[in-house]
Structures are given as C-alpha cells and as structure tokens.
C-alpha cells in the first residue's frame, strides 16, 4: 500500500516533467520521419521505417529512463523532502521500490504511446506487424526496466549528471558485450579468453532485448527465446534493485 502511494506520487511527479514531453515528441518525430531515409535508399523502404521506428522507442525510452531515473532519489535528498518521507513508518526498500514502480509505470505509458504510433505508421506504409512486433516492443520495455533499475541505483549513489553519464555509457557497452566473446583467433585458448568470457556473463547483455532487428528483416524468433530473455531481464533488474536498496539503506540520510 505504501509502495503504491510512493509509486503513484512518483508517476504524477514524473509525468509533469517537461523533459519527458520533449523526448516523447522527438521520439514521435523520429518515427514519422523514418520514411525519408527509406525513400532515399534503394530496396525495402519498410525495413528502414521499422528499424527507425523501433529504434526510436528504444532510444527515447532509454533517455527518459536515464534522465528521469537518475534524478529520482537524488532530487528527494537534494531538496530535503526525503526527511518527510523517511520520518514516517516506512522501510527504505519500500521507498526505492515505490520510486522504481512509479517510473516504470511512466515508461509503460510512453512505450505504449510510441509503440502504437509506430505500429499505425508501419501499417499505414503498407507493412505488417505480426506477433513479433509486439514481442519486440515488449522486450524494448523489458530492457528499459533494467536500465531504470540501474538509474535508480546510481541515483542513490551519485549526482544526476554523473549518474546519467555512467548509465548511458553502460547502455552503450551493454549492447556491445558480444565483443568479449567475439575475440581474434590468436587470443583463443588463452587465459584471456576465459577472463573475457567471465566478464561477458557478469555484465548485462542488452542486445538480448533487441529483436526488433529480426522483426524489421522478417526473421522469425521463437517465443521461448523471448520468454527466456524476459527471465534474464527480470533477474538482472531484481539484482540491481536489491543493490539500490542496500545502498540507500546504508546511506546517511
């Protein structure tokens, strides 16, 4: 109940943030303008429209998660409003979870809005959606859940600017962890290979959630693959939220 109250409050607060609308508008403009590149290129215009539309949902969703997320806890501490909350009979983990749930509700709304606009646009341009389109949007949202959890963790640790830089870097590197196992031939069989493989399995692999590339190219993806990626995302998110709770519980506020 207390978590729900904090979540509702966080949602109300975040939805009033002008940055959110700015990012949302940019996202929608990107989706609608995707046809320009398709028009100028040779070949399947719809592929490019689908690519850019779904990439926009992913990128602008991530930006919302980062810029709003890294502010969540820090802002409460900075403005000292945190004291009015933690002086009440409320556990600190409830506060973190409430903040997190509020933001992911907001992300659900923005992803849904961009997802619907993108779907309508693809259909209007003569494309087809299929189940894989909705799975692709769902996995983008699942990725945002993980990114948001990381943002909340950083928000409990550091300033919003530094937090945003770290989360954005992690976002880029999280999509490129595949390079750790795609090593040159002369490194194969060395201790370095095992070390890099170990790092690969420890770091979050965000490219798991990018099945929109397969959708755009008409490649089939099994539902099992989608479900297992959701399990992976949920576990990693839970871990990050646990860490955020630990940090906040030990924070001297």
């Amino acid at each position: 109940m207390r978590i729900r109250a904090i979540a509702a409050n966080t949602y109300r607060e975040a939805i009033r943030d002008k940055v959110l609308y700015l990012l949302l508008i940019f996202g929608i403009i990107s989706i609608v303008s995707s046809r320009i590149l398709g028009y100028m290129s040779i070949g399947d215009e719809l592929k490019i429209i689908a690519d850019i539309s779904l990439a926009s949902i992913s990128i602008f969703g991530a930006l919302i998660a980062v810029f709003v997320g890294t502010n969540l806890v820090y802002k409460e501490i900075d403005k000292r409003t945190i004291y009015t909350i933690i002086s009440r009979p409320i556990d600190r983990y409830e506060f973190i979870l409430g903040k997190y749930l509020g933001l992911i509700t907001l992300l659900a709304v923005t992803t849904l809005v961009m997802g619907i606009i993108s779907a309508l646009y693809i259909v209007m341009m003569g494309g087809s959606l299929g189940v894989i389109y909705f799975e692709a949007v769902l996995l983008i949202y699942w990725k945002l859940l993980l990114v948001t959890a990381f943002s909340v963790l950083l928000s409990s640790l550091t300033s919003p600017v530094l937090g945003a830089i770290i989360v954005l870097s992690a976002y880029v590197f999280g999509h490129g962890t595949g390079i750790l196992i795609d090593i040159p031939v002369d490194m194969q069989g060395t201790y370095m290979e095992s070390l890099l493989a170990a790092i690969y399995f420890v770091l979050p692999n965000l490219s798991n959630f990018d099945i929109w590339k397969e959708y755009a190219n008409g490649i089939e993806i099994s539902h099992t693959y989608v479900v297992w990626n959701m399990v992976y995302g949920a576990l990693y998110t839970a871990l990050l939220l646990y860490l955020a709770t630990l940090v906040f519980e030990n924070k001297d506020v």
Binding site: S41, K47, H175
Partner: peptide, 13 residues
C-alpha cells in the same frame, strides 16, 4: 557493430 548502443541496424541503413 558492438559500439552502436544497439543501433547497428540504423547504422546499416
């Protein structure tokens, strides 16, 4: 491919 922040498709386009 690995450092496009998941946007390798867009870069390919």
């Amino acid at each position: 491919k690995y450092f496009t922040g998941g946007l390798s498709n867009i870069l390919a386009d």
